[in-house]
Design a binder for these strands. Structure first.
Ligand SMILES: [Mn+2]
Ligand SMILES: [Mn+2]
Ligand SMILES: [Mn+2]
Ligand SMILES: [Mn+2]
Lengths: 225, 225
DNA sequence: ATACAAATTTAGGCATTCCTAAATGTTTGC
DNA sequence: GCAAACATTTAGGAATGCCTAAATTTGTAT
C-alpha cells in the first residue's frame, strides 16, 4: 500500500508543513512535539518512520529536523484542503460559527474520502478561502502564497486589510469577531506601544482607535492593499 | 474516562446489536467475526474486554456468545443513529445516490460529535428514516421496532409495502432501484418458486410480474399495509 | 578550547487491535 | 453414550503510536 497514512501520520505531516513556514526550512522535533501535544521521543520515532520506506514523506537528519518531500507536501496539502473545506462547509451549510469549526475539522479531515471532498467543494462553489481567511489548497495540491505580515510586526502608519486570523483559540475568535477584526476588514496600524504594550489600530469605519494585545496581534495576518 | 470507545469498539457493539435481532438473543463469536471481517480469536479478546470494567457494554459467557447491556445498547444505537443520519445527509445535501452512502457512513459514523449529529438532524428536519428505509434511532436512544417480514418469507398472496432494503451491496441497490423495489413501494407476493427459485412479485403500477432471486428476496423487508 | 545547558535520540515499556496455530469445549449423529 | 465435527478460546506474536528515564549530541558562553 503506497497510499496509506493514518490519522497520526496526517497530523505530523500537517505540523511539519505549518512549522516549515513559507521558507520551507526544517521543523525541529521539539516544535513538532509541542504543536501535536506528544513527547519529543514520539516525534523522533515517527520522523524515522516517515523518512524511510519506498516513498518517504520527509527527509530527516538526526538532530537537524525534518523537511517534507514532494510526496509529503502533497499529502499534507490534501489534509489541509480537507480541513479548510470542512470548516467552511460547517459554517455555510450547518450553521456553525467560526470559533466552533476548527476542533471539528481537526478530527474530520482524516476521514473525508476523495469523493466527499469533491462533493463538499462543489456544494460550496469551489471556494478559495476558509472562514478564517486561509487559502484552501487546490484539488491538485497547489497553494499560492500570499505576502502577509503579522499585525504585531506591521509598520506603524500602514493601512492594510486583514488577511487571516489564527483559528485555534475559540475564545480569541469570539473576541476578534466582536471587535470586527475579521478577514477583509481594512485598518490602519497606529503604533506599537513599548514594553510589550498593545498595538494600536483604527478599524476603518470606526471612530475610536483600539488596543490589541501582543498575543492577539501575533494571531492576525495583514495584507497590503 | 467512562465515555471512551474506539472505532473498533463501536463496530463490535453495532455488530452485536444487529446480530441479536429483534429477540435480543446472544451473538456468537463466529458471526461477529464474519460480519466484521476479523478472526474469531480477535472477537474473543474484544468480548472479554467489553464485558469487564466498571461499565461493561456486553455480558459474555465463554462459548455462549455476547449480549449488549443497557449501556452497550445505548452506545450501539448512538452509532446507528449517526450512521443513518450521515447516509441521509449525503443523499439529501450532497447529491449522493443511495448505493454510495453506506461505505462513507461506515467510516464517518465514528467521528461525528454530538453537536454535529444535532446539526445534521436539524438540517434534515429530524428525519425518521434513512435512504434505505431503516428507522433512525432517536436522540435519546429509542428505536421503535416495526413488524416486518423478509420478502423471501412472506406468504404468497400477501400484499404489502417495502419497508427497507439491505444497504451493504451497492450493486444490489442499483438493481433494486432500477426495478423499482424501493421503500414504500407496494407489491403483491405471487409465489415462491421451488428449488431455491425466484420469488415472483407484482409491483403495483406495473403490468408484468417479476422474479426476485432468493438472495435479493432475503435483502428486502416488507410491512403489512 | 571547554564545560554547561538545551535539544534530541536511544532504551525499555505499555495499550490497542489484529493475526495464526494449537488446544479445548460443545453439539450432534450414530 | 461417544466420537467426530464444529465452535470457541488460549498462546504467542506483530504493528502502531504513545510514554518516561537515561544517554548523547549540539551549540553557546566563558
Ligand atoms: Mn482550522
Ligand atoms: Mn487532525
Ligand atoms: Mn448503512
Ligand atoms: Mn463503522
Amino acid at each position: 500500500m503506497p497510499n496509506s497514512g493514518s490519522e497520526s501520520v496526517d497530523d505530523y505531516l500537517k505540523a511539519i508543513l505549518e512549522l516549515s513556514g513559507p521558507t520551507g526550512g526544517p521543523a525541529t522535533s521539539n516544535r513538532i512535539a509541542q504543536r501535536l501535544g506528544v513527547s519529543a521521543p514520539s516525534v523522533t520515532g515517527m520522523l524515522r518512520k516517515l523518512s524511510t520506506g519506498n516513498r518517504p514523506c520527509v527527509t530527516y537528519q538526526k538532530h537537524h529536523g525534518a523537511r517534507l518531500t514532494n510526496e509529503g507536501r502533497r499529502r499534507a496539502l490534501r489534509i489541509v484542503r480537507r480541513h479548510r473545506l470542512v470548516e467552511l462547509f460547517l459554517c455555510e451549510v450547518l450553521g456553525y460559527s467560526w470559533d466552533e469549526v476548527h476542533e471539528e475539522a481537526e478530527r474530520l479531515e482524516h476521514f473525508i474520502s476523495g469523493k466527499l471532498e469533491e462533493r463538499i467543494a462543489r456544494k460550496l462553489g469551489n471556494p478559495e478561502f476558509d472562514p478564517h481567511g486561509d487559502r484552501i489548497p487546490s484539488k491538485h495540491g497547489t497553494l499560492p502564497k500570499r505576502k502577509t505580515v503579522r499585525l504585531s510586526e506591521a509598520p506603524a502608519g500602514q493601512t492594510a486589510v486583514v488577511s487571516s486570523v489564527s483559528d485555534r483559540d475559540p475564545e480569541m475568535l469570539r473576541y476578534l469577531q466582536r471587535i470586527g477584526l475579521v478577514p477583509n476588514r481594512r485598518l490602519t496600524v497606529l503604533e506599537h506601544a513599548p514594553f510589550e504594550g498593545p498595538t494600536m489600530v483604527r478599524l476603518h469605519g470606526e471612530r475610536q482607535s483600539r488596543g490589541i494585545s501582543p498575543k492577539l496581534a501575533r494571531a492576525v495576518l495583514l495584507q497590503e492593499i
